[in-house]
Amino acid sequence: MQARSSFEQARASVGHRIHPALFYSMFVLLLGGNALLGTALLLHSDIARLWSGKTDQIISAYEDRIAELRVEIDRLHSRNYAQAGDMNLQLQELAQQQEVLLEQHQLVKVLVDKADALGIAPAATPTTAAITVPTTASGNPDIAATAASIDQMMTETRSAMASIASTASERTEGIVSTLTRLGIPVTLPPVEEGVGGPLLAPVEDAALSPAVEDANAVLAALIRYQAARQSIDAAPVHMPISDGYRQSSGFGNRKDPFTGSRAFHAGLDFAAPSGTSVFSAAAGVVTFVGQKSGYGKTVEVTHSSGFITRYGHLSAYMVEKDQRVNTGTPIAKVGSTGRSTGPHLHFEVRRNDTALNPKEFLEAGRQLLALI
């Protein structure tokens, strides 16, 4: 009973606090607000399209945009990869060029050694170190600068080889011209060329590199120059006497020292102290050692060029018959034997038993000496 009385008192208290009309009015307002919010949501463009059956179009539009972004990203990656790939390709090409450069340099070193042995001093030989790739301000490899450096070094290397070939060819032509003027034949190895065979299409991969072709050309020029130099050794163009002499008589008609009348003198006379060394004027074989009328003690050397040199009025022999001698080999001593008025060397150059003017040969020898 007491509990029921308390409940009824509380209900009466609430009834006094909230009027029923106010309660229902608040409920109506809350319901109307929810209705307005729902209408606003339905009128929103994207949400309205979702509710109006256009969901597939919106999803498709977003997917298209995402696809465009992916394509753009792939394009950027592809550009970077292309640049990196192109750079790597250029670096590979530079590495190949450096290999060619090193090949050229090795060939030049070999050719310079051979040229030096023949007395040819080529242009300065380029030194080839490992190529380092410089970088630009942005830190990327400076391909253009590296390529220009390699091109310059390759040009210098080929220039060095061309210098050797040019010098060798010029000297060869000078030797041939001088000796031909004296009637001395010069035999040079021919330039190697194809002489026959089936006609086939060229094979690009089988072609020699420019470095090897240049080296072959230089080597051919050096071989021909070496052959020309060997022709000089067989030509009687070298002085048969060195220090302490003077030319006392020339070639041709002169006043005979014994008769006082004009007579033909078949050689050159070099006045020198008795015992002065006499040298072979060219490489050859000793074909006469002994006394010869008017010449006294005489030595004759026959040369492969077809000439014979005669050395007269000697005091002593230093060679024997059939002995092979080189240019400058000591063969005798100056004397005054035979038809002579004092110690001197009588020097003759003969061909087919005809005396030729030795002065022309010795002057040619001085020119050749200056040339080589």
Rank of each mutant, 00 (worst) to 15 (best):
I18P: 05
P273Y: 14
E360D: 15
V100S: 14
Y311D: 00
Y81Q: 11
R49P: 02
L29Q: 13
M239Y: 15
E8M: 02
D64M: 10
F258K: 03
E93V: 12
G294A: 10
A228N: 01
R310Y: 07
A137T: 12
T146G: 03
L314M: 08
A144G: 10
A162W: 01
G15H: 12
L41Q: 04
G294S: 11
Q92K: 11
F251R: 06
K255I: 15
P273I: 09
G312I: 06
E300T: 11
Q106P: 11
T354N: 14
L101I: 13
A282G: 08
L43I: 01
D256Y: 01
G335R: 00
H105E: 07
Q97V: 09
A82Q: 15
R79P: 05
M239S: 13
V28N: 12
N80M: 07
F251K: 07
R181C: 09
G365P: 04
A281D: 01
P210V: 03
E8C: 05
A221M: 02
S45T: 08
I232D: 01
V237W: 06
R262S: 15
L362I: 14
L179P: 03
I223G: 01
T125Y: 05
A129G: 15
A221G: 01
E204K: 14
S169A: 13
L50K: 02
I175Y: 00
Q226D: 15
S280I: 06
K109S: 12
A281P: 04
A165R: 07
K114L: 11
Q291T: 08
A84T: 08
T132G: 04
I131K: 05
D64N: 13
A272P: 01
S13N: 12
A48G: 09
S280E: 05
S6K: 12
T287N: 06
V133K: 04
R254M: 14
A207D: 10
T302D: 03
D205C: 09
F288G: 01
G250N: 10
I58F: 03
V218P: 04
R49S: 03
V278N: 00
V110E: 04
D64F: 10
M318W: 14
L219N: 08
L368V: 10
I175K: 03
S169L: 08
T55E: 07
D74S: 10
A148N: 14
S242W: 11
S280F: 04
S315I: 01
F288V: 02
S231R: 01
G32M: 14
E63N: 09
A117D: 07
D214N: 11
L118W: 02
E213P: 07
A165I: 10
R75A: 00
V319Q: 11
V71E: 12
R11V: 14
A207I: 10
S231F: 03
L219R: 06
V299M: 00
A168K: 06
T55I: 04
T302Y: 07
E99P: 00
R224G: 02
G174R: 00
I66R: 13
F264T: 06
E348S: 08
A168T: 09
L369E: 13
A234F: 14
D64V: 09
N352Y: 13
I18G: 05
